[in-house]
Design a protein around this nucleic acid. Structure first.
Ligand SMILES: [Mn+2]
Ligand SMILES: [Mn+2]
Ligand SMILES: [Zn+2]
Ligand SMILES: [Zn+2]
Lengths: 139, 139
DNA sequence: CGTCTTATCGGGAATCATTCCCAGTATGAC
DNA sequence: GTCATACTGGGAATGATTCCCGATAAGACG
């Protein structure tokens, strides 16, 4: 069989580059771009390459440890999932500083599935992101 | 005042390149990339440059005539709004062929605003897109 | 511990969508 | 018709992301 279960854990080596990327993400509750994470790490004297940053960010997403949001300009931003990482959720994101709050909307989930079914669509998923200015940035 | 109302109509010249781009979009009910529209027009013998295609697609978006959706890979895709273009709406999009259905969800709108307000966010907007396989592509 | 297999690194090249630039062209007002 | 200038388009530039591949280091095993 060529297809493995998506939840199959892959054996990974523990490297300090990987730890550094995770620490960088964990230090902020904001969605951050790969370029930004890379710049921060280098500024802190970390010895790491840009390719490696991209590699680990993608691994986190694959493992369900991080979420990715595409900014309007197309750039990908990443953030570690909170403690409630096991449940499906969405985000309320500050356009200015990137600060994000995990949100849930059961009603939205059922609505999305219903609308899709009514139109004959199957194998559905959805993206729901709310953007705005957080209290700090609004002042 | 440096800021004009977003609804202010700008005077534009009628060019056949602009018409060609609009016709190309109107011919399909799918979200299509600038590159795709460009390739189609050239294949049809239209005399038009890639820059011009991007230019007009952006104009349509600015004028509220078209919607733009960013595919997971980050590429922007465009589609003319339907007759109900005056009302705020979202889309149910086929992952395979790009076919899109305009959908409305009043409950989602109020939910989004409420969640944002509860968390002290202002000047909010949101993206809600449902992806799946249309009936044709599912067979 | 040493050795060995190989996953992981990382720097630079390559890709690719999108934007920029600007001299040439066509629109529409008068 | 004339004219000011909005529009055009081809090529260069940008910038994020991916590729490539020889060098490095994690960790299994004895
Ligand atoms: Mn959801
Ligand atoms: Mn909405
Ligand atoms: Zn903020
Ligand atoms: Zn389809």
């Amino acid at each position: 069989m060529a297809l493995m279960a998506a939840t199959q854990q892959v054996k990974r080596r523990a490297t300090n580059q990987g730890a550094a990327v995770k620490d960088a993400l964990a230090a902020e509750d904001t969605f951050r771009s790969a370029q930004d994470v890379y710049a921060t790490l280098r500024a802190n004297g970390e010895k790491i390459g840009l390719s490696t940053v991209y590699r680990h960010l993608q691994i986190f997403v694959d493992d369900g440890l991080a979420d990715v949001i595409h900014k309007p300009d197309g750039e990908s931003t990443y953030r570690l999932c909170g403690d409630a990482s096991t449940t499906h959720h969405h985000h309320l994101v500050c356009r200015s500083c990137g600060k994000a709050v995990e949100i849930e909307g059961p009603a939205v989930e059922t609505w999305a599935d219903k609308v899709a079914a009514q139109n004959g669509f199957t194998d559905v998923n959805h993206t729901v992101e709310i953007f705005g200015l957080c209290a700090s940035c609004a002042g």
